[in-house]
Amino acid sequence: MLLTPLDGITLQTKIAANAHAMKRWLGKAEVVLGNHSDRLNAINIFPVADGDTGTNLYLTVRAAVSALDESPVAVTESGNDVGAVLSKAGQAAMEQARGNSGTLFAVFLCAAAEPLAGKTRLGAPLLATALNRAQIRAWSALSEPVAGTMLSVLEAAAHAAQRVDAEQDGDDSNHALGLSLDAVVEAAYQAVLRTEDELAQLQEAHVVDAGGVGMLLVLDCLRSAVLGEELQDEMLDNLHGYKLQDPHIHEHMPADDGVEVMCTISLSPLNAAILRQRLDEMGDSVIMSQVGGARNDDDDDDESPMEASYRWRVHVHVPDPAPAVELIRSLGEPSDIAVSQLALPRHDSDLPRHDPDLPRHDPGQPQHDY
Rank of each mutant, 00 (worst) to 15 (best):
L222R: 02
A338T: 09
A147S: 15
D280N: 14
H159A: 11
M1F: 13
K23D: 15
A17R: 05
T149R: 00
D284Q: 07
L181F: 13
P269G: 02
L154Y: 06
H240P: 11
Q245R: 09
A29D: 09
L57C: 12
A343T: 10
L236I: 07
H354Y: 12
Q135P: 09
D257E: 11
L40I: 08
P254S: 06
D300G: 04
A21C: 05
H248R: 12
D50R: 00
D169G: 08
R39A: 11
A89T: 04
D172A: 13
G51P: 05
G212C: 01
D69M: 09
S224T: 07
L122A: 12
P305Q: 02
D357P: 04
A191V: 02
S309W: 06
G211W: 00
M262L: 08
A64K: 03
P115Q: 01
P269A: 08
C263G: 00
A63V: 00
D302Y: 07
P359Y: 06
E186K: 02
E70D: 10
R295N: 13
V316R: 00
D182W: 00
L59E: 08
A42V: 02
T76H: 14
A205G: 01
R121M: 12
R163Q: 15
D38G: 06
M150Q: 10
S152T: 05
S330Y: 03
C110V: 01
V286R: 05
Y189F: 13
E230I: 07
E281M: 13
T13R: 07
D348Q: 09
A183M: 07
D355P: 01
G283C: 00
D233P: 06
G228S: 10
G293E: 09
L126V: 04
A308V: 10
S37K: 01
S330C: 09
L351F: 08
A205Y: 07
A294V: 01
H250F: 14
